[in-house]
């Protein structure tokens, strides 16, 4: 009797599965047809795309992280300003440093309703052999914001600028330990290596430890390590309190703001190198031109809006709008440079 029940249950679900599969198939055919016919119509009157369903924005990380915050703020501002009327929802797909979300979006093929937010890890993760998909497998839509790296030392440190630090590293690489929150070959490591290399340090000998449990700043403050490679925003409060010194940041020119404007760039210290922690939005691999243009325009409008300027200010983000074409070119160049760097350190795959 009970076994019969299980059997029934399995049969029933199997039945539903088959039924829905065929439904889905019909649906997707229909929608494919629709979109085709729409495309045809559209291309006649200039290829306009207008969303007719709700738009899903994937944050490849957990709630409260950088990707999640960006996605939620952007979606919220789109709604509040009415720049995009359609319903937009943020979905968290955490795991594999983003790889799980990328694999998910990649399956969406040409859907104009599945976007995701991304940043440099979409280069680091595939280059480290941890994802089959990189930025070139998706459609870059628009970059929205930029953040920069900062290299900080304890306030008591003997180093007062990047050149002193790098000189010490050239002389005795074992004497300096760098800490960051990501694994070697990923952002906090590579942003430091990139500047160090431009200063002539033997990057193979850089001693780097990773602390992913939130103890990196602690280790700097208690003197366990010498240098903390992180984002600019993370350093501001400690600098104000006089606990740490920022030796250099990776922006082109000095940032605006209270403490921020005191941070010297690497460039002004004679090290001709920068690193941008960019953040922008992507679509599935084969998004069509009309949809790309639609989103490009909407993101630009958002980036220019007063409301979003407020949000940038709130989080200390810098404006960095790039359209589809500029973005693609920027990403390709960045990736090449990172690849060279990883090869040099011996981490390339």
């Amino acid at each position: 009797m009970k076994q019969l029940g299980t059997l029934l249950f399995i049969c029933f679900t199997a039945f539903i599965l088959v039924a829905c599969n065929s439904n889905n198939a019909v649906d997707s055919n229909e929608s494919a047809n629709n979109s085709n016919s729409e495309d045809n119509v559209n291309s006649e009157d200039g290829g306009k795309f207008e969303p007719t369903q709700s738009i899903e924005v994937v944050a490849p990380g957990g709630a409260g992280g950088g990707w999640d915050t960006t996605a939620r703020e952007v979606v919220k501002t789109f709604g509040e300003t009415g720049i995009i009327d359609s319903n937009m929802a943020v979905i968290n797909k955490e795991g594999g440093g983003g790889a799980i979300a990328w694999a998910y979006i990649h399956k969406k093929d040409d859907s104009p309703y599945n976007l995701f937010v991304s940043s440099p890890p979409i280069m680091f993760v595939p280059l480290n052999g941890q994802s089959d998909y990189g930025h070139e497998d998706f459609t870059p839509l628009s970059n929205m914001i930029a953040d920069y790296a900062a290299f900080a030392v304890n306030a008591d440190s003997e180093y007062n600028d990047l050149n002193e630090l790098f000189a010490a590293m050239k002389e005795d690489p074992e004497s300096v330990t760098v800490i960051g929150a990501s694994a070697p070959g990923s952002m906090d490591h590579i942003q430091f290596i990139r500047i160090a290399k431009a200063a002539g340090v033997d990057v193979k000998k850089v001693k780097y430890v990773s602390d992913q449990d939130g103890g990196a700043l602690t280790s700097l403050l208690n003197g366990s390590v010498d240098v903390y490679s992180t984002g600019v925003a993370e350093t501001v409060e400690q600098v104000r309190a006089g606990n740490i010194k920022v030796l250099g940041i990776t922006a082109e020119e000095r940032l605006e703001g209270d403490v921020l404007s005191d941070f010297p760039t690497a460039i002004e210290q004679g090290i001709d190198e920068t690193f941008v922690n960019w953040r922008g939005f992507f679509g599935p691999p084969n998004m069509d031109q009309a949809a790309i243009e639609y989103y490009e325009e909407k993101f630009q409008e958002l980036s220019d809006s007063e409301e979003f300027a407020e949000i940038r200010k709130k989080y200390g983000w810098n404006e960095m709008y790039l359209n589809h074409e500029e973005y693609t070119q920027f990403l390709d160049e960045e990736k090449e440079e990172i690849q060279t760097l990883l090869d040099e350190v011996g981490l390339g795959n």
């Binding site: 795991g95 594999g96 790889a99 694999a103 480290n128 052999g129």
Partner: peptide, 17 residues
């Protein structure tokens, strides 16, 4: 975290973390 080496993941993305 210290080396970025994948340990016992059998190339499965779901096991990376």
């Amino acid at each position: 975290p210290q080396t970025g080496t994948q340990r016992f993941t059998f190339g499965n993305v779901n096991l990376l973390d």
